[in-house]
Nucleic acid binder design. Structure first.
Lengths: 342, 342
DNA sequence: TTTGAAAAAGCAATCGGTTGCATAAAAAGA
DNA sequence: TCTTTTTATGCAACCGATTGCTTTTTCAAA
């Protein structure tokens, strides 16, 4: 366990002051370029590495970004994190990642930890049952920037990064209608969350635009798990008037439902056309391949991280942008394609 | 932006020394319990929070664990991370996570970043083309503990956490043979990595134990992607003697291959029985449901983190345990079940 | 040669806890 | 009551980099 090299060691060796060494290593303009190169080369030679804690302590910043997500183990979220990590790494920031497991209580605790770790900024996707952002007040008060992504909530001075879920829901529904569906059913998650509320809104708008009636019977709120998909299928089987179109707000749930429906004797897409959401890898391996809305996870992570870092480096003021909309993409595969194009 | 409360503020208010306050907050035995409760309550009242940097600077440790994984966006890895996060959070450790994207070069860079961030310990799963652990020498030299998990490599003083991939591969193959398969094909990844090499070894052992011949034609090395699964299917279709059993070292690849095989007219499991690996969520939604080896991701993450933290807290010496084996589980589903049990 | 401004480098305080050692106070024993 | 232990607290030196301000050096203009 060898001793660490400090700027004092370098200073002593070169008969300079620690102040000069520090400035040289930070490329301060008041240091002559000859001294600078002398110092940097000596530092490298001695295997010097800066002590971040001393630096952080003095400068009151940490080069660390806190990330709070509902779950780490979802296909979508892991691509988001991958994107964030890529950018953060490139810009010399560290990521501290924690999961709320969809509980406000844990989210509050995580926020506290992040605060105590003195993160420079925060990237958050909200838990299912989060009602307000009070637990982030400590951050707002101290002027620590925070960006909400995907699961967002309007908030002053807090940029949101999302796709247009209303429009995506509208497009998905419209696509099913265009395939000749008469009765489209929508299955979604907790409508407390914007993503699900918005998709539902889009669904309703599409029906409305086509002059179709809206019925509560064709709207189901579930937890979008595999089990929910199975339950849904058995429910549909027992309906007097089963839907002939199914828009499910999650690919994974859609895939499991589709499997069960087929076992019950439904043909897809002819009896029931199905479209999911997220472009989860699973959508390409289920039979038939699942139509979906491509959700740009990696990109969302990259943009969230980059925006935050730009703000921290003073390149951009977050207050000027309140919302960033990413493009999504309707991907049509066999599960919904009735009208064959030649 | 209000001023932070420090132990000095508390000390002044209570007319005590900062040292006493510090000790009280750390539950030092030399402080009377009455003073302790006085100080802690005052601290809470004033909204004091410890400055980790000052503390880290002085104590030369960071309460931070570095994690390097090949990819963040894999179902398996995200469950591992979820497990690590859970334990780390509970034990008051932070996680710095980075991905090597399967490249040694990035792994080396990540290791350097971790070192500069002065992590207390390291949890690593190796990139596909990592040949040695030289880039971790800095850690070994400084006595910073490191645990390898899943993608490991034997190394002195470095605990490995794995499942018995040889045995798992053996069991998977044996299961297919028990279902009456005569020609079992094995498809795996880069055999530089223990996980794939070991599964292959298990496959070979099973054939050997049954007195079956080993043929290179029935062993394919791929990158285990969706595309690889499709290619594999079209390859099998063109084989003079297609296999009647298929052991693929990844569920996702297996699922995509299975879909293509069915399109080519193969019946599963009757023409070809298929088993995957990992118990990826996808295995439960593909048609037919995919048999697999359950890989305890969450548990692996939890154990890796807990073991490291125990070591850091002096509760356990890593050098005493060189390898931790977790249990896996053979999960039989429709894709391989020919012999029906009544 | 002197003067002055600009450029380069140094001084010393600071960030906020931690900890070995010294000291004071209280309790126990003589 | 006086000494010895034990217990509780304080002193002050760190940890290592940063930065406002001062001082020294350099170099050109007067």
């Amino acid at each position: 366990m060898q001793k660490e090299v400090t700027i004092y060691d370098i200073a002593k060796l070169l008969e300079l002051s620690p102040a000069t060494v520090s400035r040289a290593l930070n490329d301060h303009p008041a240091i002559s370029s000859s001294t600078k190169s002398l110092i940097t080369s000596k530092a490298k030679e001695m295997g010097y590495r800066s002590n971040l804690f001393a630096s952080n302590l003095r400068r009151q910043r940490t080069n660390t970004i806190g990330v709070i997500v509902p779950r780490l183990d979802s296909a979508f979220m892991s691509t988001v994190l991958a994107g964030m990590e890529k950018i953060a790494n490139k810009s010399n920031y560290n990521l501290i990642i924690s999961q709320s497991l969809e509980s406000v209580k844990k989210e509050v605790a995580n926020a506290k930890t992040m605060f105590d770790s003195r993160v420079d900024g925060l990237l958050v996707s909200l838990a299912a049952d989060t009602d307000d952002l009070e637990h982030f007040n400590t951050f707002f008060r101290k002027g620590i920037p925070m960006i909400l992504f995907d699961r967002v909530m309007p908030q002053k001075n807090c940029t949101n990064i999302v796709i247009d879920n209303v429009k995506a829901g509208y497009d998905a529904t419209m696509h099913l209608l265009d395939q000749g569906c008469q009765q489209v059913m929508h299955v979604t998650g907790n409508v407390k969350r914007n993503v699900y509320a918005d998709r539902l809104k889009g669904y309703k708008m599409a029906l409305f635009d086509r002059g179709l009636p809206l019925s509560d019977e064709y709207i189901r709120l579930t937890d979008l798990t595999r089990q929910a998909g199975l339950d849904l299928a058995s429910h549909i089987r027992q309906m007097a008037m089963p839907p002939d179109g199914l828009f499910i707000a999650s690919d994974f749930c859609a895939a499991s439902c589709m499997g069960a429906l087929r076992q019950y004797g439904f043909t897809i897409p002819d009896d029931i056309a199905v479209i999911g959401f997220n472009n989860d890898p699973v959508s390409q391996v289920v039979e038939p391949n699942l139509s979906t809305i491509h959700y740009p996870g990696q990109e969302m992570g990259e943009i969230a991280a980059q925006t935050l870092i730009n703000h921290l480096n003073g390149l951009l003021h977050l207050s000027t942008t309140n919302s960033i909309l990413l493009n999504y993409e309707l991907i049509i595969r066999q599960s919904s394609q009735r009208v064959k194009t030649p």
